[in-house]
């Protein structure tokens, strides 16, 4: 089923090779990333290792390196890359007419899971 989307702002507010955060009241944050090629991805802003804020990591290709202990996380699957094992929830996100749309139910469910 096509998810219900929430418009969270223009894509121009996302720095290339960077990220912005989206807090949800009562829960953790979502991190929204933009790669060098312009694709946009969203993960719960919490590294599976020690809950580091992935939004503050260095984005390269389609992965982000966590700022706390250098775990590399795939922006596409949320899986830890390399030798490390772990996974962070991926939140559906898309660009439509220059606006960032985020999956409403998934965003809330993903955060609920983290909060619980």
């Amino acid at each position: 089923m096509e998810p219900e989307w929430l418009d969270i702002g223009p894509v121009s507010q996302l720095p290339t090779l960077g990220a912005r955060t989206l807090p949800v009241r009562g829960g953790a944050e979502i991190a929204i990333f933009r790669t060098a090629h312009g694709s946009v991805h969203a993960l719960v802003n919490s590294c599976p290792h020690k809950q580091g804020p992935l939004s503050q990591g260095i984005v390269h290709d389609t992965s982000v390196t966590c700022p706390l202990h250098n775990w590399r996380i795939s922006l596409l699957t949320g899986q830890a890359l390399g030798e490390d094992k772990g996974c962070v929830p991926v939140i559906p996100v898309k660009i439509d007419s220059g606006r960032i749309l985020i999956g409403r139910a998934e965003a809330l469910a993903g955060l609920g899971a983290v909060a619980a």
């Binding site: 912005r20 949800v24 929204i32 809330l108």
Partner: peptide, 18 residues
């Protein structure tokens, strides 16, 4: 200043409903 600000904020009335 964008480095210090959230892009937006979700106020989840839906959490209450579900």
């Amino acid at each position: 200043k964008e480095l210090h600000q959230h892009i937006a904020e979700i106020r989840p009335f839906a959490v209450m409903e579900t």
